[in-house]
Design a protein around this nucleic acid. Structure first.
Lengths: 199, 199
DNA sequence: TCAAATTTGATACGTATGTATTAATCCTAT
DNA sequence: ATAGGATTAATACATACGTATCAAATTTGA
């Protein structure tokens, strides 16, 4: 799919609209307008609003997968602790680069309908299970305290990493800080690593 | 306002609907139906959808204030660290008891429109500023590492506390765990305290 | 008891939405 | 050049929404 094809422009616009307004909050007319095209093109390329939404989610999860796996080849040469630090860092970079994914997930989680079930079955379950497995290994190697259940560990760590970017509009509004700027991202990485791994 | 008055039943129903579907996702017809009454009653008591929504938010923030201030009288007799533990615990209890507030805040944060500005100006700014001040004191007393900026500290801590309950529908769906049960809440409190305060 | 406040039920209006269809036009690769 | 895919533009339809109005019925409190 070429970068500037109508189909890809629609995907980009839909990512922005669904990410900023949720599924029900965004309209196909709005998406078509943002992509400088028309509703007919959506019907032609994606057939329905729901299919377009699924294409957006699939695309974002592919990007997440790439981001997480980015340094996988280097893992054998890393300590258990460095693996956690590395994947935490890469995950935070991803959250900053594609905040739409977590916004979409959270929108659907709050509404708790068929679309959440679709995300859970097709994408999230896999990621959570893999994260849980990795966390458990790190925990066995003394990176995290052993008394905490792995599930709590995963959710606390993921939340700590994500939420600053989810709350970006508020932070900007209340403190005038743009959390997507590189130095702010680095500060956040340092904070999370230090707090969760008492480095 | 009596517990079972139409006005209070509307507020309850609206809390549930707005908490589970967001502002645009919820309809006044749905709220009226859930409260076993009709649209006319909404018009009569709250005049508009937006006013009803504001009443819900005001009510939830009042409950938050009560929860946070609950043990305030005991603070002078507590160590800086115990103050943090106590307020963290009370905050987590609140998040579990009224998950609708954080859902509403997050919905509006994602959409980043006039309603977010209203929440920020009328409620959140105050809470964040107070939390920041308390965090700074705790940090000066060695409860938290001093290298981290207070803003990052506040957001990481708040996120770690909230998110498990925001993700409740997913956790239930993926792991069959009800995070609102008392033992799960306690496990979460322990996890957050241990991870953030390396107790 | 009686007036005021509250509640019900119905109707209506304008607007926005997702979906669908169709015909014409443009682009591209064979 | 030509066929098939891609794109545009316009129109249409049923549905749901927030808001508004109004009359009647019911409840409440002095």
């Amino acid at each position: 799919m070429k970068q500037d094809s109508t189909k890809s422009k629609l995907l980009q616009a839909a990512t922005s609209v669904f990410g900023n307004q949720g599924y029900s909050g965004g309209s196909v007319r709005q998406i078509a307008e943002m992509a400088n095209t028309n509703i007919g093109a959506i019907k032609y390329h994606y057939s329905s609003k729901e299919q377009l939404w699924k294409a957006v989610v699939n695309h974002l999860f592919n990007k997440l997968s790439e981001a997480i796996m980015q340094d996988f080849a280097l893992w054998p040469s890393m300590s258990p602790r460095d693996r956690v630090v590395n994947s935490t860092r890469n995950y935070i970079y991803f959250c900053a680069k594609y905040p739409e994914l977590n916004r979409i997930i959270l929108s659907e989680t709050i509404q708790n309908g068929d679309r959440l079930h679709w995300i859970a079955e097709n994408h999230m379950r896999f990621f959570i299970e893999r994260s849980t497995a990795w966390m458990a290994i790190a925990q066995e190697n003394g990176v995290y305290p052993k008394e905490i259940s792995v599930l709590n560990l995963v959710f606390v760590a993921m939340s700590a990493a994500q939420n600053l970017f989810l709350m970006a509009p508020f932070v900007e509004h209340a403190f005038g800080i743009d959390v997507f700027k590189n130095d702010q991202i680095e500060k956040h990485v340092d904070a999370v690593v230090k707090l969760l791994l008492n480095e």
